[in-house]
Design a protein around this nucleic acid. Sequence first.
DNA 1: TTATGTTTCGGAACCGGTTCCAATTGGTTC
DNA 2: GAACCAATTGGAACCGGTTCCGAAACATAA
Lengths: 327, 327
Amino acid sequence: MVTIADIAKIAGVSKSTVSRYLNGGSISDATRKKIERVIDANSYSPNKFAQSLKAKKTNIIGTIVPRLDSYATSQTLIGIDEQLRELDCQLVISNSSQDLNREIENIYSLAKQKVAGIILLATEITDGHLEAFRQAQIPVILVGQQHDQLHSIIHKDYESGYELGKYVLQKGHRNIAYLGVTEKDIAVGIKRKEGFKKAVEGQPDTLVHYFETSFNIKGAMERVPEIIEEYQPSIIVCATDNIALGALKAAYMKGLRVPEDLSLTGFGGYDITEITYPGITTAKFYYKEAGRMAAKDITKLVNGEELGKISFTKYEIIERESVDNLL
Amino acid sequence: MVTIADIAKIAGVSKSTVSRYLNGGSISDATRKKIERVIDANSYSPNKFAQSLKAKKTNIIGTIVPRLDSYATSQTLIGIDEQLRELDCQLVISNSSQDLNREIENIYSLAKQKVAGIILLATEITDGHLEAFRQAQIPVILVGQQHDQLHSIIHKDYESGYELGKYVLQKGHRNIAYLGVTEKDIAVGIKRKEGFKKAVEGQPDTLVHYFETSFNIKGAMERVPEIIEEYQPSIIVCATDNIALGALKAAYMKGLRVPEDLSLTGFGGYDITEITYPGITTAKFYYKEAGRMAAKDITKLVNGEELGKISFTKYEIIERESVDNLL
DNA sequence: TTATGTTTCGGAACCGGTTCCAATTGGTTC
DNA sequence: GAACCAATTGGAACCGGTTCCGAAACATAA
């Protein structure tokens, strides 16, 4: 390992001069050239630990994800990764495996690592989270959930729910099942549903039933047959694309044709919804873009810049073949 | 920030004594108790940078992945993450976005961070990789590809290809298309194909055509129609589940029923192959398990233990509905 | 009680950087 | 050539740990 002292000795200057060279202090042209030569002749690069030890901080951004095997997570991470690379920040990913306690532990652990900021792909914010953030004294950006004490980047859950609701009505559906998720998840469990509710309420001769399932495909597969049998909806509006995938499989297994016998919609815009047959109509969120924004925003916070509490990402209704036109 | 010096002062001992307490040196019972009390009264924990600076090493394992949005990557990472957590190692994930140069840069970058070991989810090993590893002087485990100079964990590509070949024959298929990928990818592009070839060669009255496409779904969607039109195979054996998904979509779009008009198989065992309709018959690899093994092995190497050059993960042919029985 | 051997402990150096401060150098101006 | 000011430079302290080494404390044996 070649150190700054070695460079200094070889170049015939002092450590402090080399350090100044590295950090842009005032230096004469002659010594600048000399040091430059020596440094890349010996391919020197400063020891990160020594730097962090002295600086008491790093340029690492910690990202906590609830799970690694999810489209939304992957895409968001890709966006974060790309942007942080441009900003010359290091990314550390911390997986909480959908365990809120582990999530909180991860906050403390990142704090001990002296990360400059934390991006949290949030599902639910508890007092434990807030306490951890308070103790850590580190800037935080939430992605996907809103909280009035924290900065967040959120998808337009309410608006997309509303627009999708209007779309479904416009296609002539009047007997609707909405298959949602737990209200603990404010964004997905409440906002989407509320937006949808707002869109369909007041529409004459329209029946809407609300159901709840888990986030995974299997859960939806099991839930959907009962719903169909009991209420015979012409459409099931699913709160996530995964749920829609489960519903699609369930429909197939019951021998129903989609969309002729049953229409479906999702939320998310996962790539796979384009590949299924039929393609699934869905409210597409721009996760990668959200990741990019999160990365930009966290570095702004780290640098002490001002920042609005909330940013929104755009969304788009992608019309495919899974919704029948009943009119 | 409370430091070791603070603890020492409060406890009325020297820094070295506290350090000994932390690292298991010889200490009298009385001072042990005293220090213990002070430490958790002040919730002290040692500064990682200072430790790493002195020790010139870390307990961080770097994992380089070619992409984040892939089933195989996610699952492998989950396995690595779980196992490293048990082994009290820190995981750092480095994404190369399928860019070999960036992959090599990432090796150097991890080396600069003084990671204890590197796990590489490999696609192709170039001289640049070898040179980087040589310079880094850090233990490496390859996952998914084999290389005689490096330790690796590989899936049984040849064997699974062979078994799937036999399966296809046994189902009575005699006009077969094999849709593979570039031979630059030894495991996926060559091994799987060779295993399959071995299984079908010598089978009388059997026609097999080999084709190549990219790794993504879209590529397969575009490639498959030509293949069907030109050769009318009864089955397309796809080198990855993604390719099979693309083929499935392409078949649907041509109005072909699967498996009645066209059979399909994949490799990988992605969860989604269970959800499509019909479910896709595939050779399932245990990525999570491979990740676990990689994590265990890299820590063994880090600790200087001996290790065989190659480990295999198991695989399994998952029979679903996408293969018609022609007999 | 003294000599000897073990534990236990403190002091100081070190890891590889950064930064403050004072000293030197060089260039201007009179 | 002296005086002055700004630009460069070197020395030393510091960040928060670990570790070597010698001193002190204690226990045991003679």
